[in-house]
Nucleic acid binder design. Structure first.
Lengths: 193, 193, 193, 193
DNA sequence: CATGAATGAGCCTTCATTCAT
DNA sequence: AATGAATGAAGGCTCATTCAT
């Protein structure tokens, strides 16, 4: 199953690299493999062996976040109220987008570097579809909105929040506000209250 | 009034440069002054004389579009129905954003290279504020939405549309659809129909 | 005699250019003809017409100072004490070198751009020779020292003072101190007192 | 101890670069890293890796000479006659300045690129101070002259020699002559003989 | 005479990627 | 596996000088 069990030290290196990369992403520094290598105290070659491209590394960085999001989505499936389920999922999604800089490039990219990424994106799409379908079935959502639209719109909301706030402290609040505004619309003819 | 009347040949070169830059922007190529110079058949120095930085050139490219948008906004002020006025203005705005790649970086940039850009951005902000205030006064808009939010949200919508459609042919339609969805929300408790 | 009487406005321009160049020299900015033109509010061409090279302009800037130095030298010729005469002349020379940044490049240059510069450098050389010869004839100076040495040594002293002091306020004092040290040596076996 | 042992081929390249740079310095060509790379038959990046700035490279070029000078200085400390000790050290210093074009910029620079340079400059300063103090204690030197003055004056002497002689063959002789003249003065009221 | 637009060689620097050790 | 030196294309920018207007 797992491609190659990976020697213990190699695994340690891999983790180290991802950790450094995560730190860089968080501080807004562009991911450069040379840079990562230097900070990790490893040779460039080592980094390239583990992550042949910057995209690969970025996806590795994003993976835990995508997994957490998936978990939230699965959680949401258990929520009986279809509107609350969808809503909660979308809130978690924009929060993630706005909080974690690795997410939006990975989400937007038309092709993935890691199979795991494809899996997770697929899972999220599928969860979105399910949640959306339920809400639509309950007449709570405009019929023309698709799951793909949901993805794009969450990216858009996150982007809008970033455009709005220089101050990263406000980001989540702004994103929430924008999403709530949008939702009233998604909710369409059936006003929430 | 006009800073320097500019010699005829210089003016021709300037136009040529802007035209090339516009073409590059339209085909999605990043603006590089050396590149522009080569394609224009001009010396690098000439390009640098007219446009000391890539931002300056980009703003010059964006200017006509910003002017057109401003004109539309002023047109909208004459519309008696405050909701229709706002709505129309926002539609024009997302259309522009989605159609013209020079717009979003210029809109988002915290500082401007050309005074003319500052003027136009200021004018648009002011128009947005007026249109928004009228609609708000008529109780047609959620009170917590500001003019700055409008700007960010239009950027977000445009971004979402781009994320959604690889095919540029669908861009405007998608952006429209997303905006209409958002508007239902902006409209809030007073449903459109 | 004078090459071409020069129209009144042309003369005004010339003066303006020299004045700007002097200011640049004084603030330590390297002389660039484009830069001079811009600051003078003139076209580059105008500056190039008057001063075909930066050296030409620099010499024009240095000329008044060289003239003043020459005047001092001629004054020194009237001093009866040959040692005092030489000494005074050398003090004036290092002061000038250290005070006026246009001087050392012009002094050092093997070829001159302006005939006037050649004239003045020649006059100074000749004054130096006379003053030195008198002192030497009085047995007050080491016989192996030549007038050319005097020039080089004054440049050296000025250079040394500049190396020593970041603070331009100390420059003259330092240069004086260094010169006095050197002079005790020039005075050789016949101590000054 | 040694920061990083450096691979054999890398060391060869480094030496090659320094050698080329030395040749350029000797022929009076300004040090340009691209140029060095081309002449060394190496990629620019290689040169930049070893020497991030031209100053770094220049200091690397100057290092052996500074070391030799330091060695001479330490040698001079063993000389019993304090005047001869100082004198010899200063002669070696001007010889070096006049012979090796890398020296004067490095000496004059207020900040160093390599720690080794700082060390060596510090060592030379300290040697100069010691030698000067001894001579001063013996009443052989004007009291107001400091070690810093010595440095500046040696630079000045070297500069003067260069101003004097186009012909590099005379440089050392001229510098010697100028230094001897200066020394008679440093010796001051206590004539050497 | 004056103007100032145009030129373009030339220098600097970065960075993704390869490959010998 | 790991290393990190080497590569060199690519892009950025300046400035001395010319020449059409």
């Amino acid at each position: 199953m797992t491609p190659t069990p990976l020697r213990k030290d190699a695994a340690r290196n891999r983790e180290r690299i991802v950790a450094i990369a995560r730190a860089l992403v968080d501080e807004g520094t562009p991911l450069q493999l040379n840079d990562v290598a230097r900070r990790a105290g490893l040779g460039v070659g080592t980094v390239y062996r583990h992550f042949p491209t910057a995209e690969t590394l970025l996806e590795a960085v994003a993976t835990p976040c995508l997994e957490a999001l998936t978990a939230h989505g699965e959680q949401a499936l258990t929520e009986p109220d279809p509107w609350r389920a969808l809503e909660t999922f979308l809130y978690r999604t924009v929060e993630a987008q706005v909080t974690d800089a690795s997410l939006s490039p990975v989400t937007v990219a038309p092709t993935d570097a890691l199979p795991r990424t494809t899996e997770l994106k697929e899972a999220l799409r599928s969860l979105g579809t399910t949640l959306l379908d339920r809400a639509r079935a309950a007449g709570l959502v405009r019929p023309e909105v698709s799951a793909a639209d949901l993805t794009s719109l969450m990216c858009g909301i996150a982007y809008a929040a970033q455009v709005h706030s220089r101050d990263p402290g406000d980001l989540v609040a702004t994103a929430h506000r924008y999403l709530s505004t949008l939702l009233e619309g998604l909710n369409g003819k059936a006003p929430k209250a």
